[in-house]
Nucleic acid binder design. Sequence first.
DNA 1: CCAGACTCGCGTACATGTACGCAAAAGTGT
DNA 2: ACACTTTTGCGTACATGTACGCGAGTCTGG
Lengths: 196, 196
Amino acid sequence: MTGNRAAWGTISRDQIVAAATRIVRAGAYENMTMRSLALELGVSPMSLYRHVRDKDDILDEVVDRLLARAWRPSSNHVEWEKWITSAADKLRRFLVAEPAALHVYLRHPVVTPAAISRMNAMMDVLRGALPDDDTARRAYAAIHTYTVGFAALEFSRSRWSDSSDNADDLVVQLASYTTREQFIDGLHALIRGLQC
Amino acid sequence: MTGNRAAWGTISRDQIVAAATRIVRAGAYENMTMRSLALELGVSPMSLYRHVRDKDDILDEVVDRLLARAWRPSSNHVEWEKWITSAADKLRRFLVAEPAALHVYLRHPVVTPAAISRMNAMMDVLRGALPDDDTARRAYAAIHTYTVGFAALEFSRSRWSDSSDNADDLVVQLASYTTREQFIDGLHALIRGLQC
DNA sequence: CCAGACTCGCGTACATGTACGCAAAAGTGT
DNA sequence: ACACTTTTGCGTACATGTACGCGAGTCTGG
């Protein structure tokens, strides 16, 4: 017998990602550490690194799986603006609800399968609605930027307790401008501007 | 004698922030750790915590000092759109050039003195250009969101080496859509849309 | 001037991600 | 079957932020 060593081939990349996905789905992203993950898989922490580059590598794949189930607009809107709005709002919700996703989106460009599917779907709609390809690309980039930016600020605000009471009225008012309505409002302004 | 203990009153909050500012200004933000900071101040790491809540507390103040010198538009543009564009671009540059600043902006609402000055200046301009106060506030919020979002994506892209060669053409094209021109382009679309 | 309260510097300790290299298990060619 | 290479699990170690509490220095009311 081998002391206390786990059997050869105990873990695979898929199992690691699956376990991580389960943990994140359970809302325990903050407590998902390499050590806790290893413990759950009955393996030593360093063993994970045989199958995975680093923690972000795992998160990339976890987030892709979650995104695949989260990005599609609620229904097939006839008007393209509604479809785009719904798609953008879905991504915003996703990023705010899933800190792991925001982490990934802010760390590097996301080019995983689900993200690419989503991009292609949005580009198809934008290409059909705007004069030329270049305009569509610029529109996509601007909308994406606004969406991720909004999600980042909305999330950062959510973990904020106003410790200082000397709070400027304007500050408070603006800091609280991270509601869904605000998002839609700004997004519509952006879309209007992109059509000119 | 007191063994090796630093003299009473050796450090103050101001000195800590000043030292941290020096380090960040020297571009060594990544290497600014509580330990290195303490070492430079001739003090034990834990001593810092008598004067500072945590590392982010220091960074907040450092970033405010740097922001104060970085946010103003280059010149007094007559047209408000140019002034706003310049101000937004200044913030974008600042956030991309200074990782510490991006970190702070993504972590919680920034309500330090320089940030408030900047906000008030922008609000003054927007109030003068748009029909009513509410519109101005919405405009500010949207522009701020877009600016911070763009900076975050631009920065995340800069630390990216395209490891996969199966890279979709579209992906590459869009991932590289983080240039100053793209920023200005999207910003102008947004501003156009806000005026309707 | 002195006792008690308060401020401050610090030693220890812990959780985290992960670099490095050893050794056991599995695979491979002969 | 045997020598080898490759794959895999893991022990150790380090840098990081920071919680906790001790004891020394300073201040304050009587």
